[in-house]
């Protein structure tokens, strides 16, 4: 469970979820062990006003969603995809 204020930007929520997810990764499979920290860093940077490279982010999320060993990695990818679906404006903002 993650508590956040109703005005917390989605980039910050994404950064927190992936930071938490990276910390909780067991480290066994490549996309989760090595991909999740990169995604966390990307959203962290976006939160600070930086721009995420969309192709790289999509590759990492694809790998995490399609190829990670357990539900941990897949769930993280689904979370990102849900933000993309339900908050397309804020999602896009991370990439511009």
């Amino acid at each position: 469970m993650i508590a956040f204020a109703d005005d917390t930007p989605l980039a910050a929520i994404l950064a927190e979820v992936f930071r938490f997810g990276a910390g909780e990764s067991c480290g066994k499979c490549t996309p989760c062990q090595r991909g999740t920290p990169q995604l966390a860093a990307m959203f962290e940077a976006a939160m600070a006003g930086g721009r995420i490279e969309p192709g790289r982010c999509a590759d990492l999320l694809d790998a995490l969603g399609a190829a990670s060993l357990c539900g941990h990695g897949r769930g993280l990818a689904e979370f990102a995809r849900a933000v993309q679906t339900h908050f397309p404006e804020e999602w896009k903002a991370c990439f511009s």
């Binding site: 490549t30 090595r34 991909g35 990169q38 590759d59 694809d62 790998a63 399609a66």
Partner: peptide, 14 residues
């Protein structure tokens, strides 16, 4: 193509 892309992502990470 999908498998090749996934494998390439993993190899890049490693």
């Amino acid at each position: 193509p999908v498998l090749r892309a996934l494998r390439r992502t993993h190899l890049q990470l490693l």
